[in-house]
Design a protein around this nucleic acid. Structure first.
Lengths: 240, 240
DNA sequence: CGAATAGTGTCTGTTAGACACTATTAA
DNA sequence: TTAATAGTGTCTAACAGACACTATTCG
């Protein structure tokens, strides 16, 4: 760091600075497919388009706290119910036509209850099914209408899915999309929804059980039409 | 985005904003281990510590351009010689005691020639061997002295290694650390240095050749003491 | 009992690790 | 010829996909 940069560091008025925001991909599983919660924009730019919930980062606020605050403000959810992880920072000069805004994108994984609670708590949230189309994601309303996305949010959502696909098999993120007790079939459904493929049942069961992450509870599903499946819970062997 | 946030967006003077920088992990392989290029800090804070080369992001500068500019200014290298990828954004409130600075960390992979060219071009650069110590990285000079690292740069370097380890097997990043023509033994050496383990030779060769990324050139090493190995080059089957 | 899903046994093909072997070059 | 490394053949163990089978529960 040279002298001018050092001075710039001490004099906040010396140079313009970009604005810094966080944008959240609120991701759940709905009807066998990944789904996100979006907000409809009323104002220019991208009026009428759907956008990720976001907000500016406060000067004395940690980045993950900013993400947690947006989660609480826009979805009524709290950090201990939701897996939050930083995705990537988007900062193209013209990504927002108004001004330079750098956005740190975060991935929030919601289980079915959290997804429903967010929808119930904030009626402005729009649930939308995500479909991967190469580099970008397309989202559709439950009615099947394609929702245009604001800014670079199609890329951000696509990156969220891609990241999740990559981590699903070797990390424990998949469990963040499930309640505390779940059946192996429900776990497989989550994996299939994220990956967009159907998986082999015996192989999937073996692989999951061999990882040592699953604890059999001895409990069974309730109110099923047919043979109820055993309920498992997730247990982190060496908390990572 | 509510009204006050919208106004904030239009009035750069309305709120303080964090400063935004890029920091670069200039990573190569040296003597069978990952090595980074660092700069010694002369001033407070962390005077005497080693730090990653970095710089502020210009208001009209793309993020990858800012990283490329730092690469050119601090190491005399250009983007087409070096694999550059965004790592993570670090923004803890107190990571810099002077003021709030959010830093977007980038990973730059240098082959042996680029590593040497950077060292020759900027005598201030210090090559340092990286050792992973759990969550953080420790760096030592060629003489074996431990170099204290400024700010959160030990974490940033550790994340760079961790990321590289994760991607090494399924992506083509490994080739960014090699010249255009290389032997399979050199490729294996790179993998072993990054992963910090020794690998089985026949299995490694099979795996690499089966990926379809390697093209035999028919050329052979020159000036070896013993049997010269065949030179391969990397060819991206479906440019990713 | 029939329907439907839970859960398992087993075969097969692929792949990684281990290890010994052959091949090639320079001195 | 010897030293040293390049490169290969082959055995074995681990594991995933496929598919058929048994088990359990509800109505």
């Amino acid at each position: 760091m040279n002298e001018s940069e050092f001075l710039q560091g001490y004099d906040p008025a010396a140079y313009d600075r970009p604005s810094l925001t966080v944008d959240l991909v609120l991701l759940g599983i709905s009807q066998g497919a990944p789904a996100v919660l979006l907000l409809r924009r009323d104002d220019h730019p991208f009026a009428g388009c759907a956008a990720l919930p976001g907000g500016f980062v406060g000067m004395d606020e940690e980045l993950d706290q900013a993400a947690g605050r947006v989660l609480a403000d826009k979805a009524g959810l709290f950090g201990d119910q939701v897996h939050l992880e930083q995705l990537y920072t988007f900062g193209a000069v013209n990504r927002d036509p108004r001004m330079r805004i750098i956005s740190i994108a975060w991935l929030a994984l919601l289980d079915e209850a959290a997804f429903a609670a967010a929808l119930a708590g904030n009626p402005a949230l729009i649930p939308a099914k995500v479909e991967m189309q190469g580099d970008a994601a397309a989202v559709t309303t439950p009615d099947g209408d394609v929702l245009p996305l604001a800014f670079d949010h199609a890329q951000i959502i696509a990156l969220a899915i891609t990241r999740l696909r990559g981590k699903l098999d070797y990390s424990d993120v998949g469990f963040a999309l499930l309640p505390e007790h779940f059946t192996l079939r429900a776990l497989q459904n989550v994996h299939e929804a994220i990956l967009g493929v159907t998986l082999n049942k015996p192989a999937f069961r073996r692989r999951m059980l061999d990882k040592g992450w699953l604890v059999a509870t001895g409990l069974r599903e309730q109110n099923t039409s047919y043979r109820p499946a055993e309920l498992f819970r997730f247990s982190n062997p060496i908390s990572s």
